[in-house]
Computed example of a mutant assay.
Amino acid sequence: MSSEEPTRVKEIMSSPVETISRDATVSDAAAKMRDDNISALIVTTSTPSIITSTDILDAVASGTDTSELDVTELMTESVETVPPDLQIGEASAMMTNFGIKHLPVVERGDYVGMISSTDIAAQVS
């Protein structure tokens, strides 16, 4: 038996999780991501929701005027979440299968962090 335990999500996730109100604008979200040097925010809604820098870039690239949009108009609702004790290989497989780059980490119904494909890549390199 190997003495090396697999790395768990909780060991490499970003914490505390950064959030933004569902009433915030896309401009607010972009500014917060820039200021905090992050690429995703949990949107405080009843179901797990997220807005990412990719969501904003896609909207701008498609010609959408984002200056007055609320985050709810671009966010992804009902996102997948993972528990902190999940092995990073399983989190990586989820990201690949769902075509996503971020997974909120939830424990007992509370957001405790965020894991990204960048976090996983840094860990395995």
Rank of each mutant, 00 (worst) to 15 (best):
I20R: 00
T7L: 07
V105W: 01
T25Y: 06
R108L: 08
L74F: 10
V105Y: 04
S15Q: 02
D36V: 03
E80P: 00
H102N: 09
V112Y: 02
V82H: 05
G99W: 01
S46V: 04
S21T: 04
D58Q: 13
V71P: 00
S49W: 02
Q123I: 03
A24L: 08
E73R: 07
T52C: 13
S62A: 15
K10L: 07
E18Y: 03
A29F: 04
V60D: 13
V43M: 01
D58G: 08
Q123M: 11
S67R: 05
I20T: 03
D65M: 05
R108T: 12
S39R: 15
S49V: 04
D23A: 11
T54D: 14
P48H: 12
T7S: 05
A121D: 10
M1A: 15
A31P: 02
S2W: 07
S3L: 13
T118R: 09
T96Q: 13
A59I: 11
D119F: 08
K32T: 09
V9R: 03
E80F: 02
E107F: 00
S49Y: 05
E68N: 05
V112S: 02
A24K: 10
P84I: 07
V60L: 14
D55V: 03
P16F: 10
S21A: 04
A59G: 12
I42C: 00
I88V: 15
E5Y: 03
P104R: 08
L69I: 04
E107N: 01
S92L: 13
Q123A: 15
D65R: 04
